[in-house]
Design a binder for these strands. Structure first.
Lengths: 215, 215, 215, 215
DNA sequence: AATGAATGAGCGTTCATTCAT
DNA sequence: AATGAATGAACGCTCATTCAT
């Protein structure tokens, strides 16, 4: 806050340009390899402008991560509505799994993920903002609602919908991460389908209505 | 080839000292932040000695990763025998889960994990050696045998023991990674127990013998 | 392009200081022995300033050579007017020869010559700019005009004035180079005079008017 | 002389191998760029062996130059006999000129020349052994004898045969050096022929018998 | 506010030389 | 005598940051 009156002469356009350029460079190169020169050049801005807006490399980095997390967290929420409530449990879960995988394995999301993991130990501020990692509240909630709804219909038997949702998302994305080398190697649609299918299998069996049916 | 017997006069002690020092520094600082100077100083060795043994920073790094993977891969195999075949399924799985979590969340293992993820995109050689990541064959096999044995006894119903084993390990460690901030923040025994318990719950439900048998 | 007028904020004074210091150090030490550190220190400038102005050591070197060639090429042109058109052929040639020798054996010129020869094979760019070496067009032309004029007066018989001029300069400076150890060991005035005299002798004999005159 | 008895255990074969390898590397790379490691490797010898035989890099360099000068000085003496005493003056001189040019522009001779010039200022010992440079006594003498013989036959008029020989050789090789970029760029046979012809022209005119004609 | 020139520290790497075998 | 491992000092170059405009 250099100007107490609030009339900040710093151009918001340049602020955004720097943030955007820094995101690109940090995600591509990692923190240490990225140079402020490179970022300033990418943003087509003087180097001092970068320092004027963000203070130093580390603060710029944290601003980038914060912004990128916001973007990633916001984006997939769109997925919420994409869970098809009319399909049967298997079809619905499999489709949701595929969409989730595609989202979490998107190159930018993966790069952000890797970058954050890489720097977690060296930038304590990151630890505060990263507690939840990829499974954002909104996504868990959406899957949990799906489970709840299916339980209501008697298709599934679900004791703790949020726990199940979290486990589903976690196993799904863990498999995706490992198989794709943390997003470095893209997965084919077929691989994505398979991961979603085997994960769905597990959860359908675990939550299949128990025998009372006998009657 | 001056010495036909293959006696390398390069001191194996220094080789190991450098490797050890490099492991420490790379794991602590990350690839870019780690300097060859620092590694040489830590190993109490001249810088050229490092270059004589490993050629350059990148090759040293890959040697470190390779060695560390071997160590990590070998160590947990001890776990194999630690799965108690006499306990009931729940107790056995929960105990195995706790041991696995403790192993994969050990500070060195976590640091290696983060480091490898960080550098995957920049060191293609890593991608070749990292396909399987944490779930080594031996561990999967041990858990799979557990499942198979319990299926034989009729305690569980298991269609594909290896798949189930892999899913169990993956979900378990994914939860551990996320909750511990990728190993940066150590988990309490209670947290570990809880993760193992909820994961075990899921798998016991999924593989519970389906009732009809009775008939 | 922030400043449309082309005003380069890079200080021309520092540019010149670096160029000057580099010339001094390269001429004294040779390319490999000269260090950028030493050049920067001599110019009383930071090392990065050197890199900012010239990019890298090789480009700095080429800039130095280019500048020095320009200086050497320009300087001796002053000689042009120094050929005395009123003296008889012998006196004129001898005096011109002495002046030429003194110019080409000047310590800086010699050092540049040695340096360029040393690096010719390793810096292909040098080869383009060095085709003519020491005998600049202007000097050849001046001597050629002298020959032409004397031929017109009937003092000499000259078939190809430019060829003769080139040969005169070349023999003269070759002798000077060899006798002075390529400029490392300075020649006395007496030696210079002797070289000029014997060279002049050869050319006067070669271009003496052939007998028919007798008639 | 490490062993006073004269039974030097140092292998002469390795001595020669090192000298040969060093010659190759120094001529190719120049003094500074050449590394003792590279030389030892080229000679297929340990590095300490190099130091055992030659003391240090500079002494090795001087030994190389000395040996190479000897080789160059010896080789062209063969030229002596190649001056055809039966041909007429023009034919004989032109042919001798071509042979001389080919010898002095041979790649090794040129490289040695450039190398020595490059290092003259930094290795004072070189200055002692380099006074005569390319025009070895033997060659001058051979050409001088040619002039003397032709003077005897009345074909030429020669006052100082050694001086004329030296001038002939010097102008010839100066032209060759300049045109070939100091041996970096090879000359075609046609170019060599032309240089020899124009140089011969000059000397034939300068030494043509003067008009005793009068009688 | 914004620029790019300038700085000093540090990087990965290589060198001539010596040491231990 | 001969080896190659080991050393410490340098090298060319780049960096995050500050200065002057």
């Amino acid at each position: 806050m250099p100007t107490p009156t609030g009339t900040d002469r710093r151009s918001p356009a340049k602020h955004q340009a720097i943030l955007h350029a820094a995101t690109e460079v940090f995600l591509r190169e990692g923190y240490s390899r990225a140079s402020v020169d490179q970022i300033a050049a990418t943003a087509e801005v003087g180097k001092q402008t970068v320092y004027g807006h963000f203070g130093n490399k580390q603060k710029l980095f944290l601003a980038v991560i914060e912004e990128a997390q916001r973007a990633v967290g916001v984006g997939p929420e769109g997925l919420t509505t994409l869970i098809d409530d009319n399909a049967d449990a298997r079809t619905g879960l499999e489709a949701a799994g595929e969409r989730l995988l595609k989202a979490t394995l998107a190159p930018d999301v993966s790069a952000l993920h890797r970058l954050t993991i890489a720097e977690l130990a060296h930038h304590p501020e990151l630890q505060r903002s990263w507690r939840d990692e990829s499974a954002s509240e909104a996504i868990i909630e959406a899957v949990a609602q799906f489970f709840t709804e299916r339980a209501r219909r008697g298709e599934l038997e679900v004791a703790d919908a949020r726990l199940s949702a979290r486990q589903f998302i976690m196993l799904l994305s863990a498999e995706g991460q490992v198989r794709s080398l943390r997003g470095v190697h893209p997965l084919s649609d077929e691989e994505i389908r398979e991961i979603s299918r085997t994960t769905t299998d597990l959860f359908l069996r675990a939550h299949r209505p128990s025998g009372p049916a006998a009657a």
